[in-house]
Structure formats: structure tokens, C-alpha cells
Simulated assay, not measured.
Amino acid sequence: MGITARGIGLLVAAVVLLGVGFRYAYPELTVLGAAAVVALGYALATAAWRPRLAVERTADPDRVARGEPAAMTLTVRNTGRLRAANLVAEDRCGGRLVPVPLLRLRPSRDTTVRYDVPTHRRGVVPVGPLRVTRRDPLGLVALARSYGGRVPVWVHPRIHPLRAVPTGAGRSLDGRTDSVPHGSITFDSLREYVVGDELRRVHWRTSARVGELMVRENVDTSLPRLVVVLDNRAAAHPDRVDGVAESFEAACEAAASVVAAAVREDLPVSLLLVAPPGDDTAGGAGLETSTAPLDRLAAVELAEGGVDVLRAAMSRLRQDRLGDTLVFLTGPGARGDLGHVGALRGAYPSVVVGVFGAAGPTPAGAAGLTVVDAADGAEFAAEWDGIRRW
């Protein structure tokens, strides 16, 4: 609860009037001071009334690509039974305030407001809560309360179509790729028999030892597995335009394009970050997989970390060996660190590096890698489709 400038003036006047009136026995001044106190009490009681409001939000849609339209529909309902709500309300949408008219909102009635959500920048736009300000008729006291929760709108990076996809370390026996990761080429593990399994896959020796049918579980090792590593270190993207690292935004678009192309071709893909979110950058802890890679790309931000963070991340990649095709996306500040990425060629037969925002071309033979220099995501997509050898 806050007292306005008018309320503060009236409070000071009330104290002065009451003090002078009682001190010098002026009943007129005492009456005026008492009236001012009554007015302040009435203002406090009026502003303290808490209206009963129900707030519902619907994002249409709640996930969009950068630049695509998105709207938020806000419905405010007066669930009270006695009084109409006459309030000043504002809804917070990202960094701006949207006015919401709540004039004479009668009991059991509602009002709906629809407005556009800004999607010109990649990120997660928080919408809400609704801030309702209650004022007294004299404008002496103002009380602000929050209603409803926050609803995020995920603004994904732009996706540029990629025609080419890696074919992996080896060719599939049934064509370029298989549609499922389980096949009949390489033994992977044993599991219990389920109805429908082929009897020729039963491992009789193990079945006799454990007392129940066990079948072989095989995998197709020729199925390409993509690992997309996004370098989100602030040191890798030193250039800023209005506080935004355009090279990092381009890298996010490239990562989204590669992930979308892999999903389109039913290829396993993992999205990893060099530096973890927050302040914990030790040990390459940022290399966690995600079930929603586009959401991660919408929420990812630049993090602090130097070459030691990159070295730790590459060491973990070498140990885990998550796939056979590694796509490393970085900025101009990491051109001197590509040797750490080149050290992964023994673990990953195909390594492609995308460098964004560099002033000049990166040497083609840098660390023996396939390097793609691009100014933005669209140029990366064109260069990617031109790669002849993975």
C-alpha cells in the first residue's frame, strides 16, 4: 500500500492542524485536522478492499519462430457477488505494460483483452502477472496487487531448410539411412522375451541359465547420430549490437536448422551447450541432453567461461562419444580455440564447424576440420548444402 503525494500532503496538514488547534485552543483548526484524518481513514478502507478476480491467459500460439505473430488473450472475471470492480489494471508482457480496462466490471461478468506478443527477438517472453491498482476517490492512497501467474511464450530461432543431412560413418544395408535405431546387425544387449519376438533371436544358452526366455537386442550401427554443440560462451561472441550478439543469434538459428533437418529425416540428434546456464561452469556441466531442443535454444543465453570451459566440454564429448557426426557452432572469438574441437576427430569421424560473424574466412585447414564461415543462418544453410564430404 502506498500513499500518494496528495495523501502525504493531507497527512502533514492534518498533523499540523491538530497540533496547532489543540495547542492554542482553536476548535476550527481541530475540526479541519479531524476531517483530514477521517478522509485518510476512508481512503485506506476503500483502497484496502480486495476485489475477487479470476484471471485466465491463453497464448495463441505459445511457441513461434522469431518474427512470426503471436497473441495473448487475457480474460478477467469478477467473481464477487456484491460490488462492481472499478480498477486500473496493467498486464506485463516482457518489458512493456499493456493497459487492461476494468471499468465497472459487474459481479459474475468478465472482460477480454487481446494483444500481440513481441517476437522480434529470440527468447522466452514472460507474460503476467496482472497488476491491479486500487485507488480511493480522492486519490490519497493507491494499493497494487498481482493476480494470476505467468505464462511464457517461447520464441524459437528461425529455421532455414537444409536439404543435405550427414550419412554417418557407414552406409545402411537397406539404403542411406534406416528409419528405426533397432536393427539386426550388431549385438547390443539381452532382454526378456515378449509376445511377438522372433524365435530365431532367442539366446538359448542364457535362457537355460536364468530360467526364462531371453532374446538378443541388436542395433544398426550405420544409422548416423548427430551431435550439435552450441558454443554459448560470451568470449566466443564478443561483438554486440544494442546489447545483442548477432553471431550468437545466427549460431542458434543454425543449430535449430540442423536439429529440424535431423528430426525430419528421423535421425537421432542431441543438442549440447559448451557452458551451462547460470554461474556453474565447472567441468563442462552444460553438456546435458534435452527433450525439447528448440525450447532450449529459445531460452539459452550467453554464459561466462573461457578456454578451460571449452576444454572440459570437449573432454567430456570425447569420453561419451554420443554420435558419429559432430556439428560445432561458435563465433569469431573462438577461432583460436578450434584445436580443441579438432582433437575430437578420433571419436567423431565427421566434424563440421560453423563460425559466425568472423571478419575474414577461417583457414580451410584449421585443425583438419570442415569449416563453414557464415554471416547468418541463411548463409550457413546455403554453405551446409554445399558440403560434399562428411
Rank of each mutant, 00 (worst) to 15 (best):
F187H: 10
R131F: 10
V229D: 04
S247Y: 00
R83M: 12
R92P: 06
V300D: 12
A234V: 08
A282N: 12
G175T: 12
F187N: 13
L272N: 03
V300S: 10
A256Q: 00
V210P: 04
V55G: 00
G128R: 07
P161Y: 11
G148L: 02
T221Y: 02
I159Q: 06
W154Y: 15
V127S: 01
D239F: 09
A45N: 04
V132C: 00
L190E: 14
L272W: 01
A47W: 01
R104H: 15
L10V: 12
A260D: 10
V155F: 01
F248E: 03
V327M: 11
G149P: 06
D220M: 01
A303P: 02
V352Q: 06
T177M: 11
L11C: 10
L226S: 03
L11V: 03
A245G: 03
A285M: 08
L297E: 02
P361Y: 05
I159P: 01
L223W: 07
P101V: 08
G386C: 11
M1F: 02
D280G: 10
T111W: 03
P126L: 12
T167H: 09
R52Q: 12
R296Q: 14
H160A: 07
D116Q: 14
G175Y: 13
L329H: 02
L223P: 01
Y26C: 04
M214C: 01
T111F: 01
A71D: 09
T58W: 05
V151G: 08
R92Q: 15
H203G: 08
E304N: 13
E217W: 00
R316N: 11
P224M: 00
E253S: 14
L329N: 05
V341G: 05
V263T: 06
T75P: 01
G368T: 07
D385F: 02
